Computed example of a mutant assay.
Amino acid sequence: MRGMTEQPERWTQASVHPDMWADPADDPRNSEGPSPDGELATLEDYLANYRLTMRMKCEGLDAGQLARRSVPPSTMSLLGLVRHLAEVERDWRNWITDGEPLPKLYGARDADFDGAVADAAVVEAAWRDLAREQAATDAVLAEHPDLGERLGKDGVSVRELLVHRIEEYARHCGHADLLRECVDGRVGQ
């Protein structure tokens, strides 16, 4: 394990633009052609791209690297971010339902980050949890295509929830940029 003062050499897989994660032809987020039609399709496209970005920032790392808390004293790690996003997807469903809230996935406050340990089973479970929670929230929202519709006890609009989801993923993708660079030096958008 490298010491706190040692920094990995910066690198990228891109050869066209040195500040990119991958060359445009190899970037699965790079879609040629027209942008989606309509507000809902545009919001869903942004959300899908940020979700994919988070996955890309974690690719190629082992459990130890994913669990590394690269910026002490923060407890944040790439694995912790994956677990946190699973937790917030579940919580967003609590915002828009009238029933009893679903329990937290990982327990007490900050357990999503505190439980992000260097164990392959924990990593696999985190990705399964995230996929399941994303699909469940997506399914609930698919039943409400009117962006102005208000849901749940607090009357949260579908639009507000979608924008908040995009904001959450975008913010954490920024964290993932920095965490990944600290882990192995890889840079890029």
Results as ranks from 00 to 15, higher is better:
Thr75Leu: 08
Glu143Ser: 15
Met20Asn: 08
Ala170Thr: 01
Ala142Thr: 07
Glu39Gln: 13
Pro103Met: 06
Leu66Val: 12
Gly188Ala: 09
Val140Arg: 05
Asp114Val: 06
Arg180Glu: 10
Ala41Phe: 04
Ala86Gly: 10
Gly188Glu: 10
Glu149Phe: 01
Asp91Lys: 06
Ala41Asn: 09
Leu105Pro: 07
Thr137Phe: 07
Gly80Trp: 12
Gly107Arg: 11
Asp177Arg: 06
Arg128Ile: 06
Gly80Leu: 12
Arg171Gln: 07
Glu89Lys: 08
Ala48Asn: 12
Pro34Arg: 15
Asp112Lys: 06
Val82Tyr: 10
Asp98Gln: 00
Gly174Met: 03
Leu179Phe: 06
Asp114Pro: 01
Asp184Trp: 04
Asp119His: 05
Val71Leu: 03
Ile96Trp: 00
Ala25Gly: 05
Arg2Phe: 07
Gly152Cys: 00
Glu143Thr: 15
Leu147Met: 04
Trp92Cys: 02
Leu179Tyr: 05
Ile166Gln: 02
Ser35Ile: 03
Leu162Asp: 00
Glu133Lys: 02
Asn30Leu: 03
Met4Glu: 11
Val158Asp: 01
Pro34Gln: 15
Pro103Val: 06
Met4Ile: 10
Met56His: 14
Gly99Ser: 00
Ser77Leu: 08
Val117Pro: 01
Met76His: 03
Pro103Phe: 07
Leu40Gly: 10
Arg171Glu: 01
Gly99Arg: 03
Ala111Trp: 08
His164Ile: 01
Asp184Lys: 04
Ala135Ile: 07
Trp92Met: 00
Phe113Glu: 12
His144Ser: 04
Asn30Trp: 12
Met20Leu: 14
Ala170Val: 01
Val88Asp: 00
Leu147Cys: 01
Gln134Trp: 02
Arg150Lys: 09
Leu81Arg: 05
Pro72His: 05
Glu39Phe: 04
Gly185Ile: 13
Thr5Cys: 00
His144Arg: 06
Ser31Arg: 15
Leu161Ile: 04
Asp26Leu: 13
Pro73Lys: 05
Glu181Ala: 09
Val16Asn: 01
Arg171Ile: 00
Val117Arg: 14
Asp129His: 12
Ala131Leu: 08
Ile96His: 02
Asp177Asn: 15
Ala176Thr: 11
Tyr106His: 15
Ser74Arg: 10
Lys104Gly: 03
His17Gly: 00
Glu149Asp: 02
Asp110Met: 09
Asp45Met: 03
Arg159Phe: 06
Leu141Arg: 03
Ser157Ile: 02
Asp91Cys: 02
Pro24Arg: 14
Asp129Thr: 06
Gly152Val: 00
